[in-house]
């Protein structure tokens, strides 16, 4: 059973922030509700003590998509379905849209929001690795006004972020990658539909002639939270592309993941599978690049 609670529907962001600050322990934001409602239903410890759900649906600015020459900024209430159906997101951020189309089911995607996906910060949040390789920033609003933060700084550990009590994530800022960037997204789940991811990988690479320019790699589900591999990216940027190189990158990635997770019962199969999946992903990206040329 869902415990007794009230739903508050503020008309403005200011009103919402005030309410959250007046009820720090008892109020929680509800966006799509696809995590919080089953969580409440199952009595999850993450949601105990909630008396008010603050529903932001009436605040239209949280649903806007704004494009300028450098960024596409999306409102935090944008659902996965709205994201999949947006042409400028499809053209500029194909990995993100691909990951969005693998989330849950149509019913879930019609409600669930991208921002909810990372604010929750479950290890298996599908959209996080693509957001990370696109260097997504987020905009927050608190009692002291607006500020921005890279998404990679915002995510701390499973189910924890830097979101402070009384704050709202209002926008996601996606810098448009340069044209030379090419990438792909990989997801492994137990089934295709409505399956929790076991491994997600995103790679976005700048290819110049036969060399790697900037490389951006991220993983999810197989790492404790969605994460980038900055050291690895630096190490290999500028290298000449060869089959051996792609294998080395993938092998190093597996070792890095093992460093953060420690040895687990599943490492024996997950690490080699992740390495192989990353290798195939990189190979696919490099051959797609050749075809474009």
């Amino acid at each position: 059973m869902i415990p007794e609670l009230e739903i508050i529907k503020p008309f403005s962001l200011e009103e919402a922030v005030d309410f959250l600050n007046d009820h720090p322990a008892e109020a929680r934001i509800i966006a799509g509700g696809t995590d919080i409602i089953p969580g409440l239903m199952q009595g999850s410890k993450r949601f105990t003590g909630i008396k008010y759900l603050v529903d932001l649906q009436q605040i239209d600015e949280l649903k806007e998509i704004i494009a300028d020459s450098e960024n596409i900024t999306i409102g935090a209430l944008l659902t996965f379905s709205q994201m999949i159906n947006n042409d400028s997101l499809k053209n500029n951020f194909p990995l993100l849209v691909k990951s969005a189309s693998t989330v849950g089911s149509v019913q879930i995607r019609n409600r669930a929001t991208v921002a909810g996906n990372f604010i929750n910060n479950a290890p298996c949040a599908d959209s996080v690795p693509p957001l990370l390789v696109y260097n997504a920033k987020i905009k927050l609003l608190g009692v002291n006004g607006n500020y921005e933060m890279p998404l990679s700084d915002f995510l701390i550990k499973p189910y924890f972020t830097r979101l402070k009590t009384g704050e709202i994530v209002t926008q996601i800022i996606l810098p448009k990658p340069k044209k030379e960037f090419i990438g792909d997204f990989y997801k492994l789940g137990r089934r295709r539909g409505v399956a929790i991811s076991r491994i997600t990988l995103a790679a976005l690479i700048q290819i110049e002639d036969n060399k790697l320019g900037e490389i951006r790699l991220a993983s999810g589900a197989v790492s404790p939270i969605g994460m980038r591999f900055f050291d690895l990216e630096q190490k290999y940027s500028g290298s000449v592309i060869s089959d051996k190189l792609l294998k080395n990158i993938s092998s190093d990635l597996g070792k890095e993941i093992l460093k953060v997770t420690g040895l687990r019962w599943s490492s024996e199969y997950k690490v080699p599978v992740t390495q192989q999946a990353m290798y195939l992903l990189l190979e696919r990206i490099c051959s797609a690049h050749k075809q474009v040329k």
Partner: peptide
């Protein structure tokens, strides 16, 4: 409909 509340 199991994931939508009356208040919404």
């Amino acid at each position: 409909s199991c994931l939508v509340l009356a208040g919404q």
